[in-house]
């Protein structure tokens, strides 16, 4: 039996909205330590990794490890029926072919349940090594969203270069060119408004803006985002989801011929 209850149901709604365009389906792997998901987009260019810890839920029980195959478009349809203030409970029997989602309004006067049909999904699991990155940049998630959105209107790819001067995002297209440089800035009093650049060595990599723009759909989940870069490796974009866990995106770089 699997059961996970979260008072702040809007977090689940936001998570699924952040993922559903990148990955159409994937397995929720549940165990006694929490719920994880790893899924690649259909072209194997980017990967989403979600970790929700058992102790981040208001109630969590999982007697048996299970892989629940989810179609995110369908899960999104059901979660749209939940109110933003609702408590959401996920439930499944062992070896179930459905996942039950129960929504309770804040004052308990409306309770609804929906059963989502589960799928059988063969998924490849990629091993992502823990490693030291050449550059790590923490910045307000809204700033990241603005940069990738603005640059997407100019070009298709972005060159991200981290140097001691700061982190520069450059693109070009039919309209012309664009460069946006962010500098280390710890002046704002609120930590979530700061930009912190941790540079071990200069690095420059090119990425498809379409995906970076898509990652920014996770903006409502966290005030800050962390970008990690190393030469010839995928970029790692991470959002901490409060005490519940994190959502991580990896995107393969463009490679010169």
């Amino acid at each position: 039996m699997f059961e996970a209850r979260i008072t702040q149901g809007s977090v689940l709604k936001k998570l699924v909205e952040a993922l559903k365009e990148l990955v159409t389906e994937g397995n929720f792997d549940v165990s006694s330590t929490g719920l994880t998901l790893q899924a690649m987009d259909s072209s194997h260019v980017c990967l989403v990794s979600l970790t929700l810890r058992d102790d981040g839920f208001d109630h969590y029980r999982c007697d048996r490890n299970m892989a629940m195959g989810i179609h995110f478009g369908n899960l999104s349809k059901i979660l749209k029926c939940a109110g933003n203030e609702d408590t959401i409970t996920l439930k499944a029997e062992d070896n179930a072919d459905t996942l039950t989602l129960m929504f309770e309004s804040a004052n308990q006067d409306r309770i609804s349940d929906f059963d989502l049909k589960l799928m059988s999904i063969e998924s490849e699991h990629l091993g992502i090594p823990d490693q030291d990155y050449s550059a790590e940049i923490k910045m307000p998630s809204a700033e990241y969203q603005r940069i990738v959105r603005d640059l997407t209107s100019i070009g298709d790819t972005v060159l991200i270069s981290a140097t001691k001067e700061g982190i520069k995002f450059s693109t070009s297209g039919d309209v012309g060119t664009a460069n946006i440089t962010l500098r280390h800035n710890t002046t704002p009093e609120k930590p979530e408004e700061q930009t912190i650049i941790d540079l071990k060595e200069p690095v420059a990599l090119t990425f498809a803006l379409r995906y970076l723009n898509n990652f920014s759909k996770a903006t409502p989940l966290a005030p800050q985002v962390k970008l990690s870069l190393t030469k010839d490796l995928p970029i790692f974009v991470e959002y901490q989801v409060g005490d519940l866990g994190n959502v991580r995106f990896f995107l393969a770089p463009k490679i010169d011929d």
Binding site: H44, C46, L47, E124, L126, T157, P234, A252, K254, D257
Partner: peptide, 14 residues
């Protein structure tokens, strides 16, 4: 012109 890399070439399947 740069080509789009695939994640499988950077991370191995476990």
């Amino acid at each position: 012109k740069a080509n789009q890399g695939r994640l499988d070439t950077f991370f191995s399947v476990v």
